[in-house]
Amino acid sequence: MPVSPSSSAQAAREALAVRLTHLRKDAGLTGKELSARCGWHPAKTTRIQKGEAAPSDTDIRAWCCACGAEDQAEDLIATARAVDSMYVEWRRIHRNGMRKEQEDLYALYEQTAVTRAYVSNVVPGFFQTPAYATALMSRFTDFHGTPNDISQAVAARVARSRFLYEGTHRFVVLMEECVLRYRIGDAETMTGQLQHLLAALPLPSVSLGIIPFTAERVLWPLEAFYLHDGARNVVETLTAEINIVQPRELADYRRAFATLTRMAVYGDRARALIDNAVNALR
């Protein structure tokens, strides 16, 4: 069973805290002594050593200087930045709008040979129509209160669909049936999106499985996740994007994907579920 998707980031943060603690001990300093040399309250040192607070670049340089280990500062800063990139809040990612993130994702998909995606909430970005993407991004921007550059972001998101038709990219997608029924936009928008899914079904690059409402749940519904060549997993929560690279957790998600695969229907049975959703809109 997959563990909390934020555990990779927390484990890495704790590992950084251990390295800093060992640095202090190797220098023969107490927490109070190090805090005095750094010019901050001892409580800050305690929070950093427990992995409860993320040290800034300046904090790490001060810590290393206090311990006489200036030569280790840059390596520790690089480690801290890697930890910071594992768990990133949407408000931070979209602080200047959504276009930049969509362009970064384009580059990621361009480099990915096989994308394995499981969704339980919305249609994956590479399958989205412009109208569906616009409706979804509008709600996302309104909820998080981030800058509105939706038209540019939609263009960047829809551009990813070219990989369905070009190159040797493969997309193995598992979708809960509820995704077909959740109304994103008006009836016309949803109808167009569902018809687009029907058009994608026969593509050689696509394997689309739908997990019916009636499926016996061997594994409960999960938050959406995207496995890129099995080496990186991106989990989407309400508030953040979580990048998982820890081998043990990647193995858990690959196992979860395999389990969910056995619950899905394909081909004509999948097409029938999509047709039913289209007919319900009429």
Rank of each mutant, 00 (worst) to 15 (best):
F163R: 08
L201Q: 05
S161K: 14
Y118H: 12
T214L: 08
F225W: 09
C178H: 14
A131R: 15
D59G: 00
Y266G: 01
T141Y: 04
A264S: 01
E70Y: 06
L174H: 08
A27S: 07
V278H: 02
R139W: 13
R13T: 01
P212N: 09
V172W: 15
V235Q: 02
A27M: 08
R282W: 08
S151V: 07
L250P: 02
T146P: 01
R61C: 07
S4W: 07
S7V: 03
W90Y: 14
C67D: 01
D59H: 05
T46H: 12
D71L: 10
R262S: 09
L222V: 02
V235S: 02
V245C: 08
E101W: 14
L219P: 00
S8Y: 14
G51R: 01
E74F: 09
L194N: 03
A15S: 03
E52K: 13
A199F: 11
F127C: 09
Y182R: 15
A187H: 12
R37A: 13
L136N: 04
N276S: 15
V235C: 04
E177D: 10
R269L: 08
F163K: 08
M263G: 00
V172Y: 14
Q49N: 11
T21V: 07
T146D: 06
N233H: 13
S4P: 01
V235K: 04
Y109C: 07
A187Q: 12
D104Y: 09
E223F: 10
R162A: 10
A200V: 09
D59W: 06
R269W: 07
S8W: 12
F126I: 11
A9T: 00
T239G: 13
D75F: 11
E249N: 04
V83Q: 05
S151I: 07
P124I: 02
T134Y: 11
A199Y: 10
P130S: 13
F140A: 06
A27I: 03
D75Q: 13
I77Q: 04
L136K: 07
P5C: 09
F213I: 00
L222T: 10
E52Y: 09
L238W: 15
A153S: 09
T45C: 08
A107R: 13
R91E: 12
D186F: 07
V265W: 03
A256D: 05
D59L: 05
E223A: 09
Y253S: 03
S207R: 14
V265K: 01
P212M: 09
E33F: 02
E188A: 15
G209Y: 04
T214Q: 12
K100R: 15
R217V: 00
A15R: 11
T58K: 15
F140H: 12
R99M: 10
R157P: 01
F225G: 01
G68F: 03
I274Q: 04
A117F: 04
S56T: 11
G97W: 04
L180V: 01
Q102C: 04
A117N: 14
T239W: 15
G68K: 06
A12H: 10
A200Q: 13
Q128A: 06
I211T: 03
S35T: 05
R255Q: 14
R254D: 15
G68Q: 04
A80L: 00
T239L: 13
A156C: 06
E188S: 11
F127S: 02
K50Y: 02
A153T: 00
W40R: 11
